[in-house]
């Protein structure tokens, strides 16, 4: 306690001195060169332990090594990740506040939420994606005993509007991906949102829902035990972890619903810093150990340059906007 007080008193001393010194010390080029000179805060729009968090934790160590600085995670969950997005959009663009965003926060939410206080493109500097997260069409074989997408569609067509599909939340990629599938396959089902993926999977297990789009890692355990059946991936290519499972696109031509996770800075982030983080990401995503760890839970690494990532965000925003419009989903 005594030392604490000393520490605090010296903080007070610093507080008096620091404002006087800051203008002298801070100049832009030097900032980029010495970056990172203090811990980098990575903001996540979902609670600790979420799928996003797991990816963040896996790359944390290697990324710290590649950047030569410490990384701290900050969870600001709420409104489908918008609380965190808003926070970062309004943060100082010094490279010390970075958003770990998703195709949900930057693709879906832009059209799902009617009033956002920020623009997902104009108010952010895209830095680079990290992983592709496949959604997988999962069924409870006791309710819908389908083994292929064709069988699944045939069973569903016989009973329109009768069966329920679950999702991890209203407007989540698991919801809109399935809505997109419904439109593409021409089937009619009732959507039941749950609060997060564990209750949604629980509901599928006890038969409340027949099926859902699930993030691969959340159903791997059930898949191994045979209690749930994975029918097809939503990705354009098969997932290396489970090469026997086809993609939906092999049956429904052109169907693809991928979600990625990636880093964003506030708008006006110095290009030198963006490139520094991006090249650190490149190093990390080429590290075999990281690739294997991510692959073991079904995620594929995804590396893009900042420019490519910017184009991805633009394209996905437009694509999800269409899905949102067709599905009629809204969130206020």
């Amino acid at each position: 306690m005594f030392f604490a007080r000393i520490a605090s008193l010296s903080q007070i001393g610093l507080a008096v001195l620091a404002p006087a010194l800051t203008p002298v010390l801070a100049s832009a080029p030097a900032a980029a060169q010495s970056y990172p000179s203090k811990p980098i805060t990575i903001v996540e729009g979902f609670p600790a332990g979420s799928g996003l968090d797991i990816i963040g934790r896996i790359i944390q160590g290697p990324l710290e090594k590649a950047l030569g600085g410490t990384i701290v995670f900050d969870y600001k969950s709420g409104a489908g990740g918008n609380v965190a997005s808003e926070y970062v959009a309004k943060a100082t663009p010094d490279g010390y506040t970075i958003l770990f965003g998703t195709a949900g926060t930057h693709g879906i939410n832009a059209s799902l939420y009617k009033k956002l206080s920020f623009d997902v493109e104009a108010d952010f500097t895209p830095i680079g994606p990290v992983v592709d997260v496949p959604n997988v069409l999962t069924v409870n074989p006791k309710i819908v005993d389908a083994k292929t997408v064709t069988e699944f569609i045939a069973i569903l067509k016989k009973q329109p509007g009768k069966l329920n599909y679950g999702s991890s939340g209203n407007g989540a990629s698991t919801h809109l991906g399935f809505a997109q599938f419904n439109v593409a396959a021409g089937i009619d089902m009732v959507h039941i949102p749950y609060k997060g993926s564990p209750p949604a999977i629980q509901a599928m297990l006890n038969g409340e829902t027949c099926c859902q789009f699930a993030q691969l890692q959340t159903v791997l355990g059930q898949h191994k035990a045979g209690t749930l059946r994975l029918i097809a991936m939503s990705t354009s290519k098969r997932v290396p972890l489970l090469p026997d499972i086809p993609t939906i696109g092999e049956t429904l031509k052109g169907f693809e619903s991928v979600t990625w996770y990636g880093f964003f800075g506030p708008k006006g982030l110095d290009a030198a810093i963006v490139n520094k983080i991006n090249s650190a990401l490149k190093t990390v995503l080429e590290d075999k150990e990281v690739v294997d760890k991510l692959a073991a839970i079904g995620n594929g690494v995804r590396y893009e340059t900042p420019e490519q990532f910017k184009a991805t965000v633009k394209k996905d925003r437009a694509q999800w906007a269409e899905v949102v419009k067709k599905s009629g989903a809204t969130v206020d």
Binding site: M1, A4, R5, A7, S8, L9, Q11, P39, V72
Partner: peptide, 17 residues
């Protein structure tokens, strides 16, 4: 007040980050 501020700084900022 000072003790509490110091305690909070130590616990939440320094240790728990």
């Amino acid at each position: 007040g000072v003790a509490l501020a110091a305690f909070s700084w130590c616990l939440f900022v320094y240790f728990l980050k």
